[in-house]
Design a protein around this nucleic acid. Sequence first.
DNA 1: CGAATAAACTTTAAGTATAAAATATTTTTG
DNA 2: CAAAAATATTTTATACTTAAAGTTTATTCG
Lengths: 154, 154
Amino acid sequence: MPEAHEPASKDRLRLWLRLLKSTRLVEAELRENLRREFGATLPRFDVMAALSRFDGGLKMSALSGVLRVSNGNVTGIVDRLTDEGLVVRVPVPGDRRASLVQLTDKGRAEFSRQAAAHEAWVDHMLGSFDQGEAVALAARLDGLVGTLTEEEDT
Amino acid sequence: MPEAHEPASKDRLRLWLRLLKSTRLVEAELRENLRREFGATLPRFDVMAALSRFDGGLKMSALSGVLRVSNGNVTGIVDRLTDEGLVVRVPVPGDRRASLVQLTDKGRAEFSRQAAAHEAWVDHMLGSFDQGEAVALAARLDGLVGTLTEEEDT
DNA sequence: CGAATAAACTTTAAGTATAAAATATTTTTG
DNA sequence: CAAAAATATTTTATACTTAAAGTTTATTCG
């Protein structure tokens, strides 16, 4: 009796566990580096990164949508960034419920230092992927993101 | 003047962002499913999964090592699993500092239900990877995990 | 033996995270 | 126009997370 193949589900599970483990390793290292080099955290970096991609700033709800974290969560992170003078909440004319979060000059300067270091850390950690492999795998994962986000909107 | 190639670091950064986004999407879905179907959470599932792989149980420190989370973190999760009657802390003969965490019968039964559902969810979400692709990518990521963990131990 | 060191855990403080409820403000509609 | 529904955000309650400090117990070694 020939050996049965393992079901594909087992291999997909293994793939998921590897994906999770590598992501967590990289994330932990980035988190630690941000803390050590800048006294910053990953969530704060993520918020600043999102704001730096949108001139004019983002509303709280847009921010939580882009980052895919809950509304209440963003409130706290923006509060702390505000305390540190890196972002400001600007009232939205015509809608007194909403506010626009923007990077301050200080925030922009700080973010560009952090972003440069961040890119270098990632480049080093993923150095075993040559450029072609990086492009190909990124595209493949983009496909996955596509199927996952379509489904969710159903 | 010919267009300069983008530096590899940009492509590695893009790869990292995709990796992060796909992992978070899958993780969020698993978290939500665990909550909805079992009233459970991912950290609790992870602890039970680790315990189920080691008959005889694990010491707190071993658990935090396997899961790569801090000591103090494991304390809280095990506390809650204990309250729910899914695990127990058994004293280690000869070392009154340590204790061995073990799944109870109830914990084992509960975990096997959750694990089956978990595998099916992952299989569905990663369904766009055929078996060969899953095996190949898992191997590639295993290599990445290797380089990342070597470095850290330096 | 006894002091110093190490090991196993827990506690604490601060930050991050979610879901759900509460608040305030628009917009829609009967 | 006023009641109802929808939006934008904050608050609350609970859980997870880490780093650092603290407690208790074991081990080492002078």
